[in-house]
Amino acid sequence: MPISSYVVRCLPADQAAVREELLALPGVELGEATEKGFPVVTDTPTTRAATELGERLQDLPGVQSAVLVYHNFEDVADDLAAAATPPKP
């Protein structure tokens, strides 16, 4: 946890290479590809790792866009609350 899912867009010609790149990333699973790209789910131990993984998806060669569409943080909700206070003046 948290668990997120993305729509990862790429051209059909790049799909094989993108699939390989995606499967090499820890915490990533792919759904069935279409001509637009892949549905992807990520499962990471921390929210920091989830954010970094999302950025890596976007930066993979051949990926046109990686758009977050679902985010479940039920197992880390308390940790998030404890962590979150902005700096004071």
Binding site: I3, S5, G31, P39, V41, Y70
Partner: peptide, 19 residues
């Protein structure tokens, strides 16, 4: 539960893709 949620998440992403 994790499996359950991951299946739901992936299913949703597939639906967004398909519209």
């Amino acid at each position: 539960r994790r499996l359950f949620i991951k299946q739901a998440a992936l299913s949703f992403a597939s639906c967004v893709m398909a519209g």
